[in-house]
């Protein structure tokens, strides 16, 4: 019997600290896309409430209980993270495994907001984009899901195939921000 070895999207890229931001690949969570069928949004929310303790998120919302999270992921779509899809949901929504479809990078530190302001055309100010808020938006020319996980921390998800470009964009922006901070 052959043995298949798993490889993460960034293939073992180690974390880097660039100025006041730390960048790191986030690995390993089970991801499932959920998209409700027509007219059953309320029922789906109820079923999710029973299964996970949270409903279907509103646009921009992240819902969490324990390790399990549900991140709004687009028009009438969400991403269930670190939770097993519950059988009761299948009648109400599309549910499919996306664990391998996304590359996830965290950007944490005092400069995280400044770095992302070079790349994403959305207002990242804590007041407009608080902890637990999420958005689908461009990062450079890459479409991403951007979630604020802490006052100084973001998680960025992009197509797995674009992992190298995502890393390049974020590190290049971070280097400019760091060098600017050192100017007289």
């Amino acid at each position: 019997m052959v043995e298949l070895k798993a490889k993460s999207a960034l293939g073992g890229q180690s974390a880097v600290q660039i100025g006041a931001v730390r960048l790191q690949e986030v690995e390993g969570s089970k991801l499932s896309a959920i998209a409700p069928f027509a007219g059953v949004d309320a029922k789906l929310s109820e079923a999710m409430e029973l299964a996970y303790g949270f409903g279907f998120p509103e646009p921009g919302q992240v819902l969490q209980k324990g390790q399990a999270r549900c991140v709004w992921f687009g028009h009438r779509q969400a991403l269930l993270i670190a939770a097993t899809p519950d059988e009761t949901l299948a009648e109400l929504a599309l549910i499919t495994d996306q664990s391998d479809a996304w590359c996830s990078v965290s950007a944490v530190g005092a400069a995280a907001e400044d770095v992302l302001a070079r790349l994403c055309p959305v207002d990242l100010h804590l007041r407009a984009f608080p902890v637990g808020h999420t958005a689908r938006c461009p990062l450079g020319h890459i479409n991403v899901s951007l979630t604020r996980v802490a006052a100084d921390g973001f998680e960025i998800m992009a197509f797995r195939s674009m992992a190298a470009s995502l890393w390049h964009e974020v590190t290049a922006a971070a280097e400019l921000v760091a060098a600017r901070a050192a100017l007289p």
Binding site: A33, F37, A38, Q77, D97, Q98, D100, A101
Partner: peptide, 19 residues
């Protein structure tokens, strides 16, 4: 889907990157 079939009991999602 959004313009003409939004009452159908079905949804879809890209799986290109998953596989």
């Amino acid at each position: 889907q959004q313009a003409f079939c939004n009452k159908l009991q079905m949804r879809f999602v890209s799986a290109t990157e998953q596989w």
